[in-house]
């Protein structure tokens, strides 16, 4: 793999990392699964592209895209908190509806090019005389670090603590006077604002917006969070946890680049990321099953030992087997 494609992967990782931060808020902090992501990511991209083509300043376009993402999150939030639709279904419904809306935003076309327009990335590229992808990486780093800082400080405040407590123990924080429905609504809005921002940045990077650009985004995000956790499991500091999910996203895109380098197609990544998430989520169950099997084996050996109390030689053999099963050390 070349340095160029590695740097490209890292740049992608930072840009998608903003989205991972958004997913982190709902999935990890609030403990609700919000599947609006695939839709709101593309909404952010589409809104950015169209406002940019209308001649609006690119930074302002980013803010407009974020606002659009916030509206998507608000819809899911209302469906979930006011209409009591389960969060997963509420997210799927919004996401499905958004597909039509995104097509409308893009002017009934599946994609729109912005290659002629000047963006934040072209600005940075010109300023430092850098190639496009390198400038995109710098923008991704700046934006994701700002987002991490804001989230870190926000979640450390009195209000932010009530968000964390809502994800931790809803009943408790409600008994302490917090309207948990409003907190969840806020969390979904904030989350989808970041997701849409990420989509808008990706449009800058790719120079086009596509109605299907958010496909599988939720799984990429979850995979990134899971990978980040593997590396930073020992840390409990909240800032590190935020950093670790962006880091996980970078690793994810490096894996993706390697996979493509090995001759697989970019579309195979959907399957690979699904498998990564499945393995990570199933790991505790595997461990538990292995423990249970071990107990079963030990019990049956002990049973055999009791039955064979007359035959001393067999007993000895079984004792040895039991002690080796238990991890050695214990000698009968």
């Amino acid at each position: 793999m070349t340095i160029g494609s590695l740097l490209g992967a890292i740049g992608q990782g930072f840009i998608w990392g903003v989205m991972v931060l958004g997913i982190f808020i709902t999935y990890k902090v609030l403990n609700v699964s919000d599947l609006t992501v695939d839709g709101s990511f593309a909404t952010g991209g589409a809104v950015f592209a169209m406002t940019l083509l209308a001649g609006v300043d690119p930074t302002l376009c980013l803010l407009v895209a974020m606002a659009a993402g916030g509206v998507c999150g608000f819809v899911t939030g209302i469906l979930h908190t006011k209409f009591k639709i389960p969060a997963i279904l509420a997210g799927i419904l919004t996401q499905l509806g958004l597909y039509s809306i995104n097509l409308r935003i893009l002017g009934d076309k599946a994609n729109t090019s912005i290659s002629q327009a000047s963006t934040n990335i072209t600005f940075i590229a010109k300023l430092f005389n850098l190639p496009h992808t390198r400038a995109g990486m710098i923008l991704g780093i700046i934006v994701s670090l700002i987002c991490i800082l804001i989230l870190y400080f926000l979640l450390g405040t009195e209000f932010g603590a009530s968000i964390r407590a809502t994800g931790n123990n809803e009943k408790m924080i409600r008994a302490l006077g917090v309207n948990t429905d409003n907190i969840k609504l806020f969390g979904m809005v904030l989350s989808n604002m970041l997701i849409a921002l990420s989509g808008a940045l990706l449009v800058q990077m790719n120079k086009y917006a596509d109605v299907g650009m958010g496909k599988g985004a939720i799984v990429y995000g979850l995979a990134s969070i899971v990978i980040g956790e593997v590396f930073f499991r020992r840390f409990s500091n909240f800032g590190i946890k935020l950093l670790s999910s962006v880091f996980g996203c970078i690793v994810f895109f490096i894996i993706r680049a390697v996979v493509i380098n090995l001759g697989l197609k970019a579309n195979d990544m959907q399957l690979i990321s699904a498998i990564i998430v499945v393995i990570a989520l199933a790991m505790p169950i595997f461990k538990e099953n292995m423990n249970i099997q071990k107990i079963g084996k030990l019990n049956s050996l002990n049973e055999m030992k009791q039955k064979s109390s007359v035959d001393l030689s067999l007993k000895e053999v079984l004792d040895k087997k039991i002690s080796s099963e238990m991890g050695g050390g214990v000698d009968a």
Binding site: L154, G156, T157, E158, F159, G160
Partner: peptide
């Protein structure tokens, strides 16, 4: 609960 005051 203020969004501008540290909880700790």
């Amino acid at each position: 609960r203020s969004a501008f005051k540290w909880m700790i």
